[in-house]
Amino acid sequence: MTTTPHNSMQKTLLELFDLSKSYGSIKAVNGLSISLKKGNVYGLLGPNGSGKSTTLGMVLNVVNPTSGRFQWYSGTLTTHQALKKIGAIIERPNFYPYMTAYQNMVLICKIKECGTNGIEEKLKLVGLWERRDSKFSAFSLGMKQRLAIAAALVNNPELLILDEPTNGLDPEGIHQIRKLILSIAKMGTTILLASHLLDEVEKVCSHVIVLKNGVKYYEGPVDQITVAHGFFEIKCTQIEAAIRFLESLSEIGEVQNEHDLIRIFSKDALDPESLSKKLAKAKIYPTHFVWKKPTLEDQFLTLTQS
């Protein structure tokens, strides 16, 4: 996980301003504004049909926005120029079936106007170098998806966009792709990963954007979404005194007592260190102290179901 502190010096790669897309009366994306900064790993979360793919389609020049706009590299590059510097894969790998893996890669290098030097390295990275002379049509879905990743990486992109990269793969394939994404993230590439698989996002992303019905529900660092809604469990000898003390603290929202196990829900973000310091000051020494962070899945469900 690469968590880079918020920094105004970070280069902005992509900004969306009030972007909307309607299909007839259905609003697939509704007034979406986000900005992606270099160095972060973003997870774009949302249930099926929440507008993830449409959003990506718009910034990737294949879907025309109904209203609003977006800009790449702070508007210094046109969309198609910017797309040459990034890498993107969309739900299904699309290649020329009659060409071999290698021939397809050469064509992509021509389109992206980058040298063909990266082909060998990237095909080796995804484990397809041995199969470079096989026709694309002879590949399994997992191999096609890996070729798509190699193709997206061939120009050493500044941003890698992945839309449901593990969709339709078997467990083996899913595992391979995840390992790949993790290693790419570790290399410092900025990634935008659209997925409805939360553990996938939780494992690699530093930031999340949650979408539902085309509307943004949350945007921010992945640990903040969990910290804000975490809770503590403590046990101690003087239960009554502890509860009285905790209830008197301003940052504490609710205190529950369940079979001598005290559950503390904070109003604001509260870290375990400051809580235990406060307890120690009040001469309360817990025998059991657990900070429970809800999983991203719990958070996601509360966010999207409300």
Partner: peptide
């Protein structure tokens, strides 16, 4: 679609 995503303009 892929050509456009790879940076070819329409």
């Amino acid at each position: 679609k892929q050509n456009l995503i790879d940076g070819l303009s329409k």
